[in-house]
């Protein structure tokens, strides 16, 4: 069955309507997303599975407005955006507080300490204050890496790095977390631990989670699961 948009707005933190995206290769065109729609309730978690190269990362980029789509609409809460439009300054400013991102490759800044890395989003949107610093410590504690606060990321293990990246994604208390294969670089056991932490904290923080993963076990752990295939998103459970 198609995964349809629910029309009652209030309780949704993220929605997408008929997203289209294709890449041009010289003359030919690669249609990655044909028509993707989804809606995510507050504090709800949704997993997306799919073959490699089917466009999962592209979908997340579109939702985070890091990339322009060809057509369709995106809602951050009530805020409606044309996917094909270029992002404006206001959206950029809002992204830092509305959306948190987690990637497979962590993307921590190697020159900054763990603490500085986690507080960076706050610094970038100018909301740096003592409470935020306290929040950094609390998040690191939750992630079990508070004793590494003054280390630099290259000295951390993969699991530890991803925990730090999760803390960074949460620092501005975003409504939505977009996680792109957060356990892709981790072994089964560590990946499981990190995933448990991620799900648990998102619930505590009341953040919706959109999780891209290859692991059916992790997909089961989310409230709902969907598969991206042939440019369309279908719910499986």
């Amino acid at each position: 069955m198609r995964y349809e948009v629910n029309n009652s707005t209030e309780q949704f933190s993220l929605r997408a309507k008929s997203l289209k995206k294709s890449f041009a290769f010289g003359d030919s065109k690669l249609e990655v997303l044909r028509s993707v729609s989804l809606s995510l309730k507050k504090a709800e978690s949704l997993s997306i599975q799919g073959d490699s190269g089917c466009g999962k990362s592209t979908l997340l980029n579109l939702l985070a407005r890091l990339e322009q789509g060809d057509d369709g609409e995106i809602f951050w809460g009530n805020k409606k955006m044309e996917a094909a439009r270029k992002q404006d300054a206001k959206q950029i400013a809002q992204r830092g507080t509305y959306i948190g991102v987690i990637y497979q490759a962590y993307y921590l800044i190697p020159e900054l300490t763990v603490f500085q890395n986690v507080i960076l989003p706050a610094r970038l949107n100018g909301s740096l204050n003592p409470q935020k610093q306290e929040r950094v410590i609390n998040l690191l504690k939750k992630m079990g890496v508070e004793q590494k606060a003054n280390q630099i990321p290259p000295k951390l293990s993969g699991g530890e790095r991803q925990r730090v990246a999760i803390a960074r994604a949460l620092i501005n208390s975003p409504k939505v977390i977009l996680a792109d294969e957060p356990t892709g670089n981790l072994d089964e056991k560590t990946g499981g631990e990190v995933m448990d932490l991620l799900l648990q904290t998102c619930e505590e923080e009341k953040a919706s989670l959109l999780l891209v993963t290859h692991n059916p076990k992790f997909a089961e752990a989310t409230n709902r699961a969907a598969v991206l295939r042939d440019g369309e998103l279908n719910q499986i459970a």
Partner: peptide, 16 residues
Amino acid sequence: IKEIGLLIAIGGNQFS
């Protein structure tokens, strides 16, 4: 360059 992409992804703007 990746870090620049990341900075923007976590809410930085071109100016900062």
